[in-house]
Design a protein around this nucleic acid. Structure first.
Lengths: 120, 120
DNA sequence: ATTATAGTTGAATACCTATTCATTTGTCAA
DNA sequence: TTGACAAATGAATAGGTATTCAACTATAAT
């Protein structure tokens, strides 16, 4: 019996490659969190929010104006980003000021921009 | 009249911040393509596929085995990645071998991994 | 030619998610 | 205390998407 029985609906062609890949493969949880992180950047609105916050601390109103979107929509997205630990906020009077909480975000943006400009 | 009239449903609090952010903001198309790129990495299955292909050239069967998924599912995802220019393929006999087409993907992974390990 | 297998593809389904709308909370000013 | 505004939030809706299933193509072997 092949050792790929029950594993998928086809035969292993290159068992060695599969073994190596499987051995090096990070654990499930790592991929889930990695994908979760990229998913957060993988939305035009959130992308813009993060770009703007990378320039300046901003309140919800500032962001709504910068992106020409509703406060509510921005607030929902900021909630998502806050719960994921990518932005943090401080309250001052009626306003809530947001900033990036992670220094990696800028770097990821850079690499992403390199990618899309590279393949025009 | 404020110059943010019709722009959103609130008052601008810090016009200067908004102006600077808007000035530096890349154009719409850039954000669309950037988000599109990150969206491709923002899925556990595609993430794993790209990780595996970063180790070895692989055929659909190899990937299906490595990830314990159906050929069809893998093939659909490979189609998406191929149409986005992130993977390329060569045909040999009955098999189709896939490889990464972009050297940036590895780097993005690295930064992403840094991020999620940093904030445990 | 026939059979088996690798891979692709379209349709259907089930799940996910971004935005809108309406409502609520909290803070400031009059 | 009342009114105005910033922000958050829950529900609803609409659009998107990952996987499955079934059908199909192409290639290799007998």
């Amino acid at each position: 019996m092949a050792r790929n029985e029950f594993v998928c609906d086809c035969n292993v062609i290159h068992q060695e490659s599969v073994d190596i890949a499987r051995k090096k493969m990070p654990k499930e949880d790592t991929f889930n969190r990695l994908a979760e992180f990229f998913k957060l950047l993988g939305d035009t609105t959130r992308s813009k929010i993060l770009f703007a916050l990378n320039q300046h601390e901003m309140c919800v109103c500032d962001l709504a104006n910068t992106l020409s979107m509703s406060k509510s929509s921005i607030s929902h997205q900021l909630g998502t980003l806050r719960r994921s630990g990518i932005v943090k906020c401080r309250k001052s009077g009626k306003e809530v000021y947001y900033t990036l909480d992670d220094e990696h975000v800028s770097r990821v943006f850079e690499v992403g921009l390199e990618h899309i400009s590279h393949r025009n």
